[in-house]
């Protein structure tokens, strides 16, 4: 008799079946929700607050896509994933896109068959050390114990860095960021390494953030970006251009404050094209004309999202650095909307 709970649930699952087969865009529209893979919790990038509301830099990308596609920035189902589960979740169609500070690498793109739609954060692996350790460079870390968060490219970079510099170290692989932090603070490891942004976010939660410093060395390139499955170009175009719309919006000065005013029409044809008052860009994507307007209105342009979640005014306090617009000497360079 109790089998029926199972069968009932099976019927529910049966209704939900057939997700990955059809085009992702149609699925998302039919479902009315975007399934977006995020981390299990990294302050500033993706973490639920005490009300269960997800916030963060990666989360904002998900919300922008949901706003563009579904017209509702809250129509996102956040699926927490670990380093191990994230790719299977995406490959099996459990999630529509993955925005989990994932490094764009050759093998992930080519071998694992994913499409990285762009870069929303240019990162690099760094080291966090207590000030009183008296180490000024990562090259002085001969013999040190290093805490690593597993499931990332971090282990490999670290092994390469120490091998290239011919120095020894002891890795302590830890599953979650919170536990790695606990080990680091208790002195069970001398330094903690992960992406520099993650280090800053971690340091922000310390009791005395000032007692800890980031080493000057950045030992790897970590272009982090959202990714989707290979083979569904319409869907990857939507996610890619939503991200580009956020970046272009900053470049063109479209903010969540002036977007309503600007969408009445401006003298800049590109702004008009983005906001849908000119041209048929939305139609080409299979969306309506105002898709980008909604995406930008959801959380602001790239700069606003950055400032709100991880910028210098937040406890995390990341400078724009490489993530400034190309006009300001950064690497953010969105292809033109035309």
């Amino acid at each position: 008799m109790k089998k029926t709970v199972f069968l009932g649930a099976l019927t529910v699952a049966g209704l939900a079946a057939g997700a990955a087969a059809a085009a992702t865009l149609d699925d998302v529209k039919a479902r009315g929700k975007l399934n977006c893979g995020v981390t299990t919790g990294l302050v500033g990038f993706a973490a639920p607050d005490s009300n269960g509301e997800w916030n963060g830099f990666d989360v904002s990308v998900c919300r922008a896509v949901a706003a563009a596609v579904l017209g509702d920035a809250t129509a996102v189902e956040f699926v927490p994933t670990t380093g191990k589960t994230r790719f299977t979740a995406l490959a099996s169609g459990e999630i529509d896109m993955l925005a989990r500070n994932t490094t764009w690498t050759f093998s992930r793109d080519v071998d694992l068959k994913f499409t990285f739609v762009g870069v929303n954060y240019y990162d690099g692996q760094g080291f966090l050390a207590p000030k009183n350790l008296g180490v000024s460079s990562a090259k002085d870390l001969d013999g040190a114990t290093v805490c690593i968060q597993t499931g990332t490219t971090t282990e490999l970079n670290l092994a390469d860095f120490f091998r290239a510099n011919k120095i020894e170290y002891q890795p302590v692989p830890i599953e979650t960021n919170a536990e790695a932090q606990q080990q680091y603070l208790a002195g069970a490891c001398d330094v903690f390494t992960t992406d520099a942004s993650g280090l800053a976010a971690t340091r922000a939660t310390f009791e005395n953030p000032g007692d800890h410093v980031l080493m000057p060395e950045i030992i790897s390139k970590e272009p982090l970006g959202p990714l989707v499955r290979h083979g569904d170009e319409e869907w990857s175009d939507i996610v890619r251009w939503t991200l580009n719309a956020l970046i272009s919006a900053e470049e063109l000065g479209i903010t969540s404050a002036n977007i309503a005013e600007m969408s009445a029409g401006t003298n800049n044809p590109e702004i008009n094209r983005i906001l849908g008052t000119e041209g048929t860009l939305g139609e080409m994507l299979g969306l309506d004309a105002e898709w980008a307007k909604r995406a930008i209105a959801a959380g602001g342009n790239y700069g606003e999202i950055f400032a709100k979640n991880i910028g210098e005014a937040t406890p995390i306090g990341l400078a724009r650095g490489l993530n400034a617009q190309w006009t300001d000497g950064g690497l953010l360079y969105s292809p033109p909307f035309r």
Partner: peptide, 10 residues
């Protein structure tokens, strides 16, 4: 505990 709560800055 391992995820959202310990990861939150609070």
């Amino acid at each position: 505990i391992r995820g959202p709560i310990l990861a939150s800055s609070d």
